[in-house]
């Protein structure tokens, strides 16, 4: 393969992705969710979810209220929009947190081996042996409403922070194992040996040479773990361990569990649709991305 013909690895992978219309459509939907999140953060002409109007309680979908209203007469469409912010923020921060921890631990364990490897392997074997849902429940439960001081700074962990910390601090295990395995494969390759012979420091080898060679694994795991975190946020919020006093898809579903018996379906439908479309598009986009980034798979198809 000649580099100038195909462009770099990332560019050729990108070209491969955009060849598939469903991946492009999925990416567009994902970007819409991101745009909605940013929009809610700016607060510029965002729909109003807080105004209560008891005369309008449980109003079915109409021109005025696209997704109907809830028990307090609040607009369900606005609540769904605000729920997007919570879900995307949690999933994004948790993914980055877990990605960074998994990447660094995996590289260190894989490259150095020995005691460091034993320590990191012990840590993730331990975390892995606790069933995942129990682990995030325990973390979220303990972390909520915590105050502590560190180096003179005062931290307060509440609501959304407890959720993404719990998810991020527990979610790195799978990626760490992948990266460690890949780093072990690369550790004794010629290019690593030669740069070591040239006097490169271990940290330079890890971050200049190994990192670019394993980074595609981070991207591949990213879209799948993102879906996992969105669903986990919904479950945690539903159980009362997530955000409070702010609309969240999980809280909406929690409200809906009694509404449905009274024939009020729109709040459940809105939250379900919001979760469904981001999961579906991330699945489709993630699959295409994985096929494009994994050269072994790409060559097999040709």
């Amino acid at each position: 393969m000649i580099a100038s013909q195909h462009g770099g690895y990332w560019i050729s992978a990108w070209r491969e992705v955009v060849r598939h219309p469903r991946a492009v459509i999925s990416l567009a939907v994902i970007l819409i969710y991101l745009a909605v999140t940013i929009w809610v953060y700016t607060g510029w002409h965002t729909p109003d979810w807080e105004t209560e109007d008891f005369k309008q309680a449980y109003h079915p979908p109409s021109v005025q209220h696209w997704f109907g209203t809830d028990i307090y007469g609040r607009d369900v469409f606005a609540k769904t929009i605000y729920g997007t912010r919570v879900a995307v923020t949690v999933a994004l921060i948790a993914s980055v947190l877990a990605g960074v921890i998994g990447l660094i631990f995996g590289l260190l364990a894989g490259y150095f081996g020995g005691f460091i490897d034993d320590l990191i392997t012990w840590l993730y074997s331990t975390l892995q042996s606790i069933p995942y849902i129990l682990l995030i429940l325990a973390f979220a439960f303990v972390l909520q409403d915590k105050h502590f001081s560190l180096f003179g700074y005062h931290f307060q962990i509440r609501g959304i922070k407890a959720v993404y910390l719990a998810l991020g601090l527990t979610g790195w295990v799978g990626l760490c194992r992948l990266i460690r395995g890949e780093a072990i494969k690369h550790r004794d390759r010629d290019y690593v040996l030669s740069s070591r012979a040239l006097g490169a420091s271990p940290l330079r080898i890890i971050f200049r040479h190994l990192l670019p060679n394993v980074f595609h694994l981070v991207i591949i795991t990213f879209s799948l773990s993102f879906i996992g975190y969105i669903h986990a946020e919904v479950i945690l919020s539903f159980l009362g361990l997530g955000v409070k006093n702010v609309p969240s898809w999980g809280v909406m579903i929690d409200d809906a569990k009694l509404e449905l018996f009274r024939g009020v379906w729109w709040q459940l439908a809105a939250a379900t649709a919001a979760i469904f479309f981001i999961s579906l598009t991330l699945h489709i986009f993630g699959d295409t991305l994985r096929d494009a980034l994994d050269p072994r798979l790409r060559d097999e198809k040709r």
């Binding site: 539903f238 898809w249 569990k257 379900t272 999961s279």
Partner: peptide, 18 residues
């Protein structure tokens, strides 16, 4: 893929209510 994307909670609530 559609089944994997549906939230578990919504499925349970719908099944129970319907």
């Amino acid at each position: 893929v559609i089944g994997m994307s549906l939230p578990y909670l919504a499925l349970i609530i719908f099944g129970q209510a319907y």
